[in-house]
Nucleic acid binder design. Structure first.
Length: 479
RNA sequence: GGCGCGGUACCCAAGUGGUUAAGGGAACGGUCUGCAAAAUCGUCAUUCGCCGGUUCGAGUCCGGCUCGCGCCUCCA
């Protein structure tokens, strides 16, 4: 099986063939940095992080993800905060990067900013004017969609139909109501750059055309983003880029589904969004990442506290299993027979699943069997050599798969400690007091005073503490 | 109105036309345990929104209906 990618342009999965053998150029639309990132952003960048990690196994990947750091919303927000737009944008870039780091999203190869590409943008707009695809009016420049016959192809819509719906504001300056701005004349107090059309700034879509051409090529392999960018953002990018270059902008268009709240799209306008930061105050970042990957990237995912809590419980199980495994595992060969023959096929199965349009949900499902087997071996040892070899093979496979998912690569003990300490803090539990009670219970148990031991355990339970007895002693954790 | 996506068990969720419809959670039962917890094993959808069609065979393809969501305006 070769890699198949669902291409929005084709409306179906297509076998992936890079333009240049062994290399992949991918551009993903980055955030407009005017506020804290929310879970919807987390989904896009976790999804494409995972996709790129997987692609890197097979290709040399050039991953470009931009920052849109000048735009109407940034200007508006800066005004509200009485802050320079550039300063505000930089602040939210830093916050975004902190969130991404928490989520294990690796930086792209390049993270270009619009304000560093004004020259390229102006050049591109000039080319479009020269070719007749764009026209200046009073310091603005518009793209003329009638000069681009395939306009609407990505979003599968006809210009006539869109006009019928006509929520488009009629602007007499435009030749056609659907024409969109490439360059906007600066209003007083707005940030501006000099241009042949006067002082102004780039329109919303042109930056991605300019930056993808500069940092990848006029034609590259994959362009991605959230589903809401299909129209008009990506449609307009195609129009601008292809009108200028005469080449296909991207060979594959990938779009991820929305994050929903109560089955409605999470969005600023509905005011039903959660920032990454507030979610991470309640839950571990690995739990959020795990949750996002348990649904296929193209499907909608319903976000709720309960679902992330469940994800966190599962993450805890997974890391506990890893911790147990790591405490027992020994050095030695991994080749040979295993307790279960399928252990040897784990990575191949993983690849086959990821090759089918990056089905992380199935990957995670398939991994369950591996984790169960780890615990089974630890609880019920059989042949010593076979068991040891099987554990090593499992650990290797889990690490390899996890390095693509962005899971299981942290030290399990560190993750478990992180989970536990936040729960303790939330519940206001003092570890020393817990230890004292556990010691008291141990004494009671030694004296076979089980009534007393159970009373202590109930006391701990009331604090939210659950204890586990084992031959090595008693451990505890937050419920 | 136009276009697109989806409806799989109590909940989440995967599913390339073909033996018994992944996996997780919950629930119930067994093992382990002084009892628990954790772990593990087992049970848990004759059925995939509804109706019709194609096919030797359909959750998977086609048509209709229905419900939900999204895009068409800034949005990841």
């Amino acid at each position: 099986m070769t890699l198949h990618i669902y291409d929005t342009m084709a409306g179906q999965k297509r076998p992936f063939t890079p333009l240049e053998p062994g290399k992949v150029g991918i551009y993903v639309c980055g955030p407009t940095v005017y506020d804290m990132s929310h879970v919807g952003h987390a989904r896009v960048y976790v999804a494409f992080d995972t996709i790129v990690r997987y692609l890197r196994r097979k290709f040399t990947v050039n991953y470009v993800r931009n920052y849109t750091d000048v735009d109407d919303k940034i200007i508006k927000r800066a005004r509200e905060h009485n802050e320079e737009p550039g300063v505000l944008a930089q602040r939210f870039i830093s916050e975004f990067e902190a969130d991404m780091q928490s989520l294990g999203v690796a930086p792209a190869n390049l993270q270009p900013r619009v304000t560093d590409h004004i020259k390229e943008i102006v050049d591109l707009v000039e080319r479009l004017i020269k070719s007749g695809a764009a026209y200046p009016v009073d310091g603005d420049v518009y793209f003329s969609i009638e000069k681009f016959p395939t306009y609407g192809r990505l979003g599968r819509r006809r210009i006539d139909d869109m006009e019928a719906g006509a929520r488009v504001e009629v602007d007499m300056k435009k030749h056609h109501p659907m024409d969109f701005a490439l360059w906007k004349a600066a209003k007083p107090g707005e940030p501006f750059w000099d241009s042949p059309w006067g002082k102004g700034r780039p329109g919303w879509h042109i930056e991605c055309s300019a930056m993808s051409a500069k940092h990848l090529a006029e034609s590259f392999d994959i362009h991605g983003g959230g589903k809401d960018l299909i129209f008009p953002h990506h449609e307009n990018e195609i129009a601008q880029s292809e009108a200028a270059s005469g080449k296909t902008l991207a060979n594959y268009w990938m779009h991820n589904g929305f994050v929903n709240i109560d089955n409605e799209k999470m969005s600023k306008s509905l005011d039903n969004f959660f920032t990454v930061r507030e979610v991470l105050e309640k839950f571990d970042a690995q739990a959020l990442r795990y949750f996002l990957l348990t649904t296929h990237y193209r499907s909608p995912i319903n976000f709720s506290d309960q679902s992330v809590r469940e994800a966190e419980a599962r993450v805890k199980y997974l890391y506990e299993t890893l911790a147990r495994m790591d405490a027992t595992i020994t050095d030695g060969p991994t080749a040979g027979t295993y307790r279960e023959a399928w252990v040897g096929d784990l990575v191949a199965g993983f690849e086959a699943t990821m090759d089918d349009d990056f089905n992380t949900a199935k990957v995670i499902g398939d991994l369950s069997e591996a984790f169960s087997l780890v615990n089974d071996i630890l609880d019920h040892p059989k042949d010593k050599d076979t068991d040891a070899r099987t554990l090593r093979a499992l650990r290797t496979a889990i690490t390899e798969i996890g390095s693509v998912l962005g899971l299981f690569t942290d030290n399990p003990a560190v993750v478990l400690e992180r989970l536990s300490s936040r729960r303790q803090k939330d519940a206001g539990v003092d570890p020393l007091a817990v230890e004292d009670l556990i010691a008291e219970r141990a004494a009671a148990r030694k004296a076979k005073d089980f009534a007393r031991a159970d009373a202590v355990r109930n006391e701990l339970a009331a604090m939210g503490v659950v204890i586990k007895d084992s031959p090595q002693g008693t451990t505890w954790e937050m419920a």
